[in-house]
């Protein structure tokens, strides 16, 4: 893909402001599609499957009571795939006997919808292997949301194994400032009011020294080292803007919430080709409070990235 196509496809994460703070920046999702296929589809699902095979304990978790909700996820995603990508996915249904076909991988999977014994792996794990998105399932009970199942191959430095079973606030408790002005509570209340048929989405961003998608907390000791190697000279190539497109769907029968995360990455040298993006990003990164930079893992090399961006701005 050429540079301009990369730029056009990239989900630019910043708004109008020159200042970034944590907020509930979710907006209604229209059209209401949980899944998006990009040019990296084949590479990314291959990587996902490899990670799931080698590291199941960190990439997949489920509590037994999530199976019904998992089937709802299968229904939602297959319906989206065959409707929007009819030349790449097919579905034949005869009552509850389904045959799902992934044309690109040349797979035909036959199963009885709702019968988990008819699949070799759990429903969420099965459908997650056909999409680039990470899939998290939050179940609602006692006025709270709990991370009760998930397939997570491309986490931004967190651990599904550790966070599984936690409530929304417990998961987010390590984020500095996230409790300020009760933001954690306001977002939780927002999530619990999401209605079936009216999904929402938001973008979240961070910087990554390196270009791996599988930045799990479990492997931080490996990929985190690159933070120390960032210089003004190599920042354009080494440092990537990482954007998560996050979507939220209420599952009507189980009352769970499906949270999909599609991670996109672009090296800064490509990102800065569009001058308004360059200037906006410089302002935001320059102003970013230390506690946010620290949590996003940028502190060690923020200075080098700012120097790189300044030089790029001088060139234009």
């Amino acid at each position: 893909m050429n540079s301009m196509a990369d730029l056009r496809a990239f989900p630019y994460p910043f708004g109008d402001s020159d200042v970034y703070r944590y907020s509930n920046n979710a907006i209604p999702l229209d059209p209401p599609n949980p899944i998006e296929l990009t040019d990296s589809y084949f590479d990314e699902i291959s990587l996902k499957r490899e990670l799931l095979t080698k590291h199941p304990e960190r990439c997949y978790h489920s509590a037994p009571h999530t199976l019904d909700a998992q089937w709802e996820v299968v229904d939602l995603i297959i319906d989206n795939l065959v409707t929007h990508y009819p030349d790449r996915f097919e579905l034949e249904k005869k009552d509850d006997e389904w045959v799902f076909s992934n044309v690109q991988t040349n797979e035909n999977i036959t199963f009885t919808f709702g019968d988990s014994t008819s699949l070799k792996i759990e429903p969420l794990d099965f459908i997650g292997r056909h999409v680039q998105e990470d899939l998290l399932l939050m179940m609602q009970r006692d006025g709270n949301l709990f991370l009760d199942a998930g397939q997570l191959c491309f986490p931004a430095n967190w651990s599904l194994y550790f966070d599984a079973g936690m409530s929304f606030k417990e998961i987010h408790s390590p984020i500095p400032g996230f409790k300020d002005q009760s933001l954690d509570d306001r977002i939780l209340q927002f999530l619990m009011r999401i209605e079936a048929g009216s999904p929402w989405w938001r973008k979240n961003w961070s910087l990554l020294a390196g270009n791996r998608l599988d930045t799990s907390l479990e492997t931080f000791a490996d990929w985190g080292q690159a933070r120390k190697r960032v210089t003004k000279e190599n920042a354009g190539e080494l440092v990537h803007l990482r954007v998560e497109v996050q979507k939220l769907f209420r599952l009507p029968k189980s009352n769970g919430i499906l949270f999909t995360i599609h991670s996109h990455m672009l090296p800064l040298e490509k990102f800065v080709q569009h001058p308004p993006w360059l200037e906006k990003f410089y302002s935001i990164l320059d102003e970013l409070p230390d506690f946010i930079a620290g949590y996003k893992g940028i502190s060690l090399y923020r200075k080098q990235v700012l120097e790189y961006l300044e030089e790029e701005m001088r060139k234009r």
């Binding site: 550790f162 966070d163 079973g165 417990e170 408790s173 390590p174 931080f220 000791a221 120390k228």
Partner: peptide, 23 residues
Amino acid sequence: GAELEASTHYSPRLEAYLGYVSI
């Protein structure tokens, strides 16, 4: 053998705190 920093991040499921590595 990793050097771990104790945190206050607590998992009720594991009844345990999270230990982070530093680089």
